[in-house]
């Protein structure tokens, strides 16, 4: 398989009065078509920055994003994003929220066809019967499912998930992980997910990219997840390799944590607004 996605030397520098703050310094990643890659790292290390640059929502200070042999600049529906918050438009029904994107991607389809596309994707996230509800009538998990349906309905070349389950309670999160893995098994979509949940990363990914701590974050290690797909949660949890992988991830993160304590940056780094500001703990519970 050829490299479908190529992130070449992504750099993000913020100019501050006290000098340049280098957030990401040379992030390289090649992804195959249909591959699921998670990016894991401590909060504020620049994971979301990498994802936003890939999506085109954040301007790169350097580097290239190559999708399907074409360099892309700026955001577009070929790289659909599922945001950390569902970001549904509260004045539109669930259906219309999905329709907004479908109208953009299928401008020549008839109204009925577009409606069918929306219906299909809402059905696969299990919200077929909530099509005409307004977002504020849905629970957080349901709203996020609409967010996923909206992204999938764009038929993107790449799916970008920015801590998509970060704001949900753990039961809902597991629920949505199961839904997502089922959808991806069927559709083989090239996916990049930012997370700080170790178990989520192992369950969903083909590879996990561990990022070093910022400033000047880059790829630290890459971990291959050898489990066959399709996977089920129980199979993975029973596999002895699971705990080995988990241990490696956690020890990498702990190592980074120590380095962080030794290294105190002089200038306070201005984080991009969409980066969660809390130094929340890496989830260590299974």
């Amino acid at each position: 398989m050829s490299e479908f996605i190529d992130l070449v030397n992504l750099v993000k520098i913020y100019k501050t009065p006290k000098g340049d703050a280098v957030i990401v310094d040379g992030f390289n990643l090649k992804m195959n078509q249909g591959e699921f890659v998670s990016i894991i790292g401590h909060s504020g290390c620049g994971k979301t920055t990498v994802l936003s640059m890939t999506a085109g929502l954040l301007e790169k200070s350097g580097g290239n994003v190559v999708v399907d042999k074409k360099e892309v600049a700026g955001p577009g529906p070929d790289r659909a994003v599922v945001f950390q918050a569902p970001n549904l438009l509260p004045w539109m029904s669930t259906l219309n929220n999905v329709m907004l994107g479908v109208n953009q991607v299928y401008p020549h389809a008839s109204k009925k066809e577009r409606h069918q596309i929306c219906e299909y994707f809402l059905n696969i996230v299990g919200l077929g019967d909530s099509m005409h509800k307004m977002p504020n009538e849905l629970s957080g998990g349901m709203q996020q499912r609409v967010g996923i349906a909206r992204a999938l309905a764009l038929k993107p070349k790449m799916l970008l998930l920015d801590e998509p389950f970060g704001k949900l309670d753990s039961l809902t999160r597991m629920d949505l992980q199961d839904i997502l893995i089922k959808i991806l098994d069927k559709n083989q979509m090239t996916t990049m997910m930012v997370t700080h949940d170790v178990d989520e990363a192992i369950y969903l990914s083909d590879r996990i990219v561990m990022m070093t701590n910022g400033p000047a974050a880059k790829v630290g290690e890459i971990l291959e997840i050898p489990f066959e797909k399709p996977r089920t949660r129980s199979e993975i949890l029973e596999d002895p390799r699971y705990y080995e992988l988990r241990g490696r991830l956690l020890s990498f993160l702990e190592e980074q944590d120590h380095k962080k304590k030794e290294f105190k940056p002089k200038a306070k780094i201005e984080k991009p607004a969409d980066e969660p500001d809390d130094n929340s703990e890496i989830k260590k519970s299974a």
Partner: peptide, 26 residues
């Protein structure tokens, strides 16, 4: 809301749709 603008950017909404579907309602 900046997030709603981001949605519009990802979807590459045209100016007209952006104004009438996102900016005015919000």
């Amino acid at each position: 809301d900046k997030d709603h603008i981001n949605v519009a950017r990802v979807l590459k909404l045209g100016t007209f749709t952006r104004i009438f579907k996102i900016m005015l309602p919000s």
